[in-house]
Amino acid sequence: MAPVLQSSQPWVEKYRPKQVKDVAHQDEVVRVLTNTLETGSCPHMLFYGPPGTGKTTTALAIAHQLFGPELYKSRVLELNASDDRGINVVRTKIKDFAAVAVGSGQRHSGYPCPPYKIIVLDEADSMTEDAQNALRRTMETYSKVTRFFFICNYISRIIEPLASRCAKFRFKPLSEEIMSSRILYICKEEGLHLDSEATATLSSISQGDLRRAITYLQSAARLFGSSISSKDLISVSGVIPAEVVQALLAACKSGNFDLANKEVNNFIAEGYPASQMLSQLLEAIVEADDISDEQKARISKKLGEADKFLVDGADEYLQLLDVASCTMRALCNMPEEFSYES
């Protein structure tokens, strides 16, 4: 096997914090876990929050810090959504692993090594309800020797019995300052030049998701070399420039159907993804001051429908045209119902 080239390692992995105390912005969790490191006692945990806020990082870091590289393999079981995780896996693999007894707690080459194992279930919200139910008893039976870490985006998808057995921690989206300080650190390490405008753009387009920000940064660095402007970042991220969204909105405000049609045609020819347009259009409309609440509601409803249709595989041009026409009717106060329906 050829050695994996250094540059091919994603920066997301390269700059993943190795220790719990390096995890940014999640003070509560860090405090609890630092305590765990000292005493060695640890409840079942449930981490939830939006993507890219450090949930997996924290879970892996605490596991590494507790057991060290030698024992890690035998003490930690990591399962994520891409592994098969039906009810059979819960009944066999997880149960077998959970049932194994471990030696009493002695410090092992500088690591605390408490007398239990850890099972990390990443993306637990994609587990079926049956599989989650099967876990309930397992969790209690083997609670002496096993701790479970659940990681998920939506806590509502975890069944109540499981959630009540865990200590819950919410991971907050990262604030812009923390994002930019982390981005600047990576830029320094990688020898990149980012002006302040580009940093601000990067923080805003990634919307509190640090992983996405780092991925964009790496793509831009690969494509455009070491000095990156905010325009480069936008082109890599697939975000539609604000002018394009405004142009479509202006065309809708004008009340001229043919103008809107032309804008939509142009938009499709430029190759932007329509689903992205819908979310950016929503943002622009919600934030606009000169649109009444009723108009906003009408447009938002249409946007939601169109998004669903796009997911079903409908044609981008037709859906976007429909959205544009509905937006225009809302903005120009034309009636919502069609006049000539029989």
Binding site: F309, L318, Q319, F338
Partner: peptide, 13 residues
Amino acid sequence: KHDVCHWAAYYEH
């Protein structure tokens, strides 16, 4: 035009 383009989108879906 509004009606027609709405129905076109609807039937394409």
